[in-house]
């Protein structure tokens, strides 16, 4: 009988102990952040979508269009469109023909930077395999946490354009139009 009563008291006491914790934290300063008015402090180390690293010249990517990233990607979200060989002017063609006649090897004049670097963020799992496999370190994660869009196509990027926009070279829309994305990918 006495034991039962003591049990009841200790049971009730456990509730009081819990309430004491509640009271303590009720009076403590707030730990949450009123988000839209105040930014959270922990997003610096977050790794968002991919971006191209620019070479010395602003707006020109370091990328050499080797395609290792596209090969390594587990979800096939990268497509590197290489530049075509520029058509030689008559003088250049002549010089080349002369060089060939002398037995010299013609120099490869194809620009190395990609024409387009298509990136489908909807497929990307942010594993970083592409970055690790880039021989020149031309890819990096952005810290962008606030990326949002109205349609699927908003997440199809041409990273070359994005880089140019960042450098302020061209005011072209960064996202690739849906029909180009379909025909190139």
């Amino acid at each position: 009988m006495i034991k039962e009563a003591l049990n009841t008291v200790s049971d009730l006491w456990s509730l009081m102990v819990g309430l004491r914790v509640t009271k303590k934290y009720f009076l403590d300063p707030q730990v949450t952040v009123r988000y839209p008015w105040k930014a959270v402090s922990n997003i610096a180390s977050y790794k968002g979508h991919l971006e191209l690293v620019s070479a010395k010249a602003p707006g020109k990517p370091k990328c050499i269009s080797c395609g290792m990233c596209a090969l390594a990607c587990p979800s096939n979200c990268l497509t590197v469109v290489k530049r075509k060989v520029p058509k030689p002017t008559p003088e250049q063609a002549q010089a080349e023909a002369e060089a060939k006649a002398k037995g010299e090897k013609p120099k490869d004049k194809t620009p190395k930077d990609p024409e387009q670097f298509l990136y489908d963020y909807t497929l990307c799992s942010l594993c970083g395999t592409c970055m690790e496999n880039c021989p020149v370190g031309a890819l990096a994660f952005t810290g962008s946490t606030y990326l949002a869009g109205y349609s699927r196509e908003d997440f199809h990027f041409d990273l070359v354009q994005v880089l140019k926009n960042q450098a302020g070279l061209e005011g072209v829309d960064a996202s690739v139009a849906p029909e180009t994305a379909e025909s190139e990918a």
């Binding site: 009730l12 456990s14 819990g18």
Partner: peptide, 9 residues
Amino acid sequence: KDLVSDNII
């Protein structure tokens, strides 16, 4: 422990 584990409920 105080808040939950010992709680009678």
